[in-house]
Design a binder for these strands. Structure first.
Lengths: 219, 219
DNA sequence: CTCTTTTTGTTGTATTTCCAACAGACTTAT
DNA sequence: ATAAGTCTGTTGGAAATACAACAAAAAGAG
C-alpha cells in the first residue's frame, strides 16, 4: 500500500486528512488492495456490493448493457478517482451497472459501513470523510449532466464536438488525449462507431481537428 | 411557512430531525419562502447561485438549452424534492442549467453556506443534514444514470418503453401519471415530438399501452 | 358562448443513423 | 518473420429520425 501513498494523497475523499493519519485511517476503513488484469470484471451488474473502489493505477469503466447487447459507457474512472460510491451512499442493493477494468489496474476497496459508522480511531476523520464524499457525489452529478448534454445532441458531429471541446477545456489545451478507443468513444457518445469514424474523417478534412489514435487537437 | 409543516416533514433533507426542531432549524438556515407563477424562471443558466431550493408546492424542471434553441429537460422536481443542491455542494459558480417553474409553485430557498458551516443552534443537526444531503445527491446520481439509460436507447420506441416502464415501477402500478406534456416528454427523452406522438399511437394500436393526456396504462 | 391559443396527432420528404461487410493498419504471440 | 487477432476507416443499402406544415382537439380568455 505504501507505494501508493503519493496517489492516496491526491484522492479527494481524503482531502484534509494528514498524511501521517492516512495509513491509520485506511486500517480503520479496512481498505483492501486488489489487482486486476485488463478486461477483468470488477463488479457485475445485478451483484450486491458493500464496498466502493478507488483507482490507484490503471482505469475502470462504468458500463450499462441491455439484453440486445447494446453497450453504453457511463463514465471512465481514472487514477485517484472513486467508483461505486453512489450506489453505496444511496443504499442501492442490486447494481444496475457493471464495472470493468479497461487496463491493468490496482484498486482499493473500502467498506461503506465503516465509512458511515464512526469508530474509535477514525471518529475524528469521520465528519471530514462524509463532507468529502458529499462533494465527490455532487461533482459526479455534474459530470453525469455533462454526459447527458453530449448524448442529447441531435447529430454525431455535434456530439463529437461537444465532447471534444469539453475534453480540451478539461485539459486546458487544444491538444489532449482521451481515455477511449473508437468503439468505446462511440459507446460513450451513444452513436454508431462506423458513422462516428466517418464523421471524424470529415471534421479532419474540413480542418476542424487533427487526431492520431486517441490523441486529438482542435484547430 | 407553518402551512407547509406536513410537507417539510417528508423532505428527505430533514430526515431524523424532530418536528419540534424543524422551525428552529429553518430559522438557523435562513430559509426563505417564495412564490412563483407558471413558466416563471427560478434560476437562469449562467447565474451564480448561493442557495438551493425545496419544492413545497407545484413543480420545477431542470432545463438545458443550447444556442440552436434545442431544449433538453434533465429532470422534473416534484413536491418535497430538492433542486440546485448539486451545484451548491460541488461549489459550481456558474449554473450550466436553468430552473423553471412549470406550475404555480411555492419554493423554499436555503443558503448553502449556512448548511455547510455549523452555527450555535443548528450544530446538533448539522451532521445529520450533511449525511442526508449525501444520500440525496447519491440518489440523484442514480436517477441521472437512469435518464442516461433512456436517452441512449437507439429508437424512440425503446426510449418510450424504458421510460414508461420505469414510471410504472416507481408508481407501483401499471396505471400512472407522468409530469410531462408531449413536448416536454420529447425534450426529456430527447426525441422529435411528432415522431414520438406517432410512436405512441403505434404502441396503442398494437395494444401495448393505453393513454389519455398524461395518464398512461401499460398492458 | 365565441374566439384565440395551446396541445396533440398525422403525413410526406429530406436527412441522418444503423448495420453489415470488408480492407488496410497496427499489435501481439509464437 | 509469420500468423492471428484487434482496431480503424470506408462504403452502400435499409431503417429510423428530424423537420415542416397542417388539421383536429382541448384549454383558456374575454
Amino acid at each position: 500500500m505504501k507505494k501508493y501513498l503519493e496517489i492516496l494523497k491526491t484522492v479527494k475523499l481524503f482531502k484534509g486528512i494528514k498524511e501521517s493519519d492516512l495509513m491509520l485511517l485506511l486500517g480503520c476503513l479496512s481498505g483492501k488492495l486488489q489487482h486486476y488484469e485488463k478486461n477483468e470484471i470488477v463488479f457485475m451488474s445485478g451483484e450486491s456490493i458493500n464496498s466502493f473502489g478507488i483507482v490507484l493505477a490503471g482505469q475502470v469503466q462504468i458500463v450499462q448493457e441491455d439484453f440486445y447487447g447494446n453497450r453504453s459507457i457511463l463514465a471512465n474512472i481514472g487514477v485517484s478517482n472513486l467508483f461505486g460510491e453512489s450506489f453505496a451512499c444511496a443504499g442501492i442493493k442490486n447494481l444496475p451497472v457493471s464495472v470493468i477494468a479497461t487496463a491493468e489496474s490496482d484498486l482499493l476497496f473500502i467498506d461503506c459501513q465503516r465509512l458511515a459508522t464512526p469508530c474509535v480511531n477514525s471518529c475524528a476523520f469521520h465528519s471530514q470523510l462524509i463532507q468529502n464524499m458529499l462533494h465527490i457525489t455532487a461533482m459526479k452529478n455534474i459530470s453525469l449532466m455533462q454526459k447527458i448534454e453530449f448524448v442529447t445532441k441531435r447529430t454525431t458531429r455535434e456530439k463529437l464536438l461537444a465532447y471534444l471541446s469539453s475534453e480540451a477545456q478539461k485539459a486546458g489545451s487544444s491538444c489532449f488525449s482521451i481515455p477511449f478507443n473508437r468503439q468505446e468513444l462511440a459507446d460513450y457518445l451513444s452513436v454508431d462507431r462506423s458513422a462516428m469514424s466517418a464523421e471524424l474523417g470529415k471534421l479532419r478534412d474540413e480542418g476542424i481537428l487533427k487526431f492520431h489514435k486517441n490523441h486529438f487537437e482542435l484547430l
